[in-house]
Simulated scan of single mutants.
Amino acid sequence: MRKVISFQIPKSNKEFVRFQVDAGKHFYDKLHQHPQWQLTLILKGKGHLMVGDYLGRFEPGDMFLFSSNIPHVFRSDSEYFDQESEKESLGHTLFFDFEALGKKFIEVEEFVELQHWIYQTKGCFSINGDAKNAIANKMSFFSEQKGLNKMLISFEILKVLMESKDLALLNTLIPSIDYTETEGKRIGQVMSFILAQSQQEIHLQDVAEVANLSKEAFCRFFKARTGKTYTEFLNQVRIHQACELLQESEFPISEIAYQSGFQNLSYFNRVFKKVKGVSPMKFREMGISRNK
């Protein structure tokens, strides 16, 4: 029997929705999955969101929806792990447990549309526009709700999600089987190592040793669980870091390439354009024009 990644939402089996505040230096940094659906609003903190074959940045104001049993992790940036830093992380999350409604749930006529949406909606989504604003407003006073009011607001939020055109699917790789605890721990350690060391030169052998696998076995393992090769993943991490430096600093592009872990400027330019669709210079200019 495969033992999946161990992670329990602190709620009773009879509770349909749970509101949770995640406050501290950094977010929970282990790859995990759970049967409950998750809706998270980031209020403080920055870092990488990793889910399936998706790797992207999160920052204050971002909102994400995860369907059931999608392995994911909000990996805060390194400065949030520095005990001397004043950086803080804060997120508000709703966990929806549709199984708590019971088997008769699918037989209730009024819930047919919701049940169909639940069945069709798989993966991780970013929520934008009017939908995000409407949901964030409801989440701002959700902790005060109890009983029937809590249930009614929950379904109002679900209705917004169902009817919204502002949900963007982030991952294309949907796991066909659950991660075992061993696999979850291994891929989590690998991702943490890459994120921590990405500004340095990293050899394939070094990462394979973190996973306790041969180079060949590691490459197969990593591609099967992320949908990316090790090099593609590493380059994407470095490009995300370069994007932040391009937007938040005045360093020359050659210096940004080096600080992001690229030893060759022409290679950096090629990879950047492949990932972002524009050159580093154009990306910086676009950011400047948006901020004016």
Rank of each mutant, 00 (worst) to 15 (best):
L265N: 06
S260I: 12
K273S: 15
I239G: 02
Y267A: 13
K276R: 11
E248C: 09
V275L: 06
Q241F: 11
V275A: 04
Q259H: 09
S254Q: 14
K276H: 00
N264R: 07
P252H: 14
C243N: 02
F272C: 04
I253F: 03
R270H: 11
V278D: 02
N269A: 12
S254V: 09
A257R: 00
F262V: 09
A242F: 08
R270N: 08
V275G: 03
E255K: 12
L265M: 10
P252S: 09
K274Q: 10
Q247E: 14
A242W: 05
E248I: 15
F251T: 02
I256S: 01
G277F: 11
S279M: 07
Y267R: 12
K274L: 08
S249K: 03
N269L: 08
I239Y: 04
K274N: 08
H240W: 12
S260F: 10
L246G: 00
A257Q: 00
G261S: 11
E255I: 09
N269Q: 15
I239W: 01
Y267I: 12
I253P: 01
E248N: 15
A257F: 03
F262Q: 04
A257V: 00
E255V: 10
E255C: 05
V275N: 06
Q259P: 00
V275T: 11
F251I: 04
Q247T: 14
S249R: 01
S266R: 14
E248Y: 10
P252F: 10
F251V: 02
Q241D: 07
L246P: 01
F268S: 02
Q263F: 10
F272I: 05
V275S: 05
F272D: 01
V275W: 05
N269E: 14
S279T: 15
S279V: 07
K273L: 09
S260M: 12
H240R: 06
G277D: 07
N264V: 13
Q259R: 13
K276N: 02
P252V: 11
A257C: 02
L245N: 08
F262T: 05
F251Y: 11
S279F: 08
Q241V: 09
R270L: 13
K274P: 00
H240T: 06
Q247G: 11
I239R: 03
A242K: 04
S249P: 01
Q247H: 13
G277R: 09
C243E: 07
Q247P: 06
S266D: 13
A242P: 02
I256R: 02
S266M: 09
E255G: 01
E250M: 14
S266C: 05
C243Y: 01
F251W: 12
Y258A: 15
R270C: 03
I256G: 04
K273V: 04
S266V: 15
Y258E: 13
F272L: 05
P252Y: 14
E248V: 14
V275P: 01
F268T: 03
Y267C: 06
K274S: 10
C243P: 02
C243H: 00
I256A: 02
F262K: 04
E248H: 15
S254W: 08
G277A: 09
L246V: 00
Q241M: 14
I256P: 01
S249E: 03
Q259Y: 07
V271A: 01
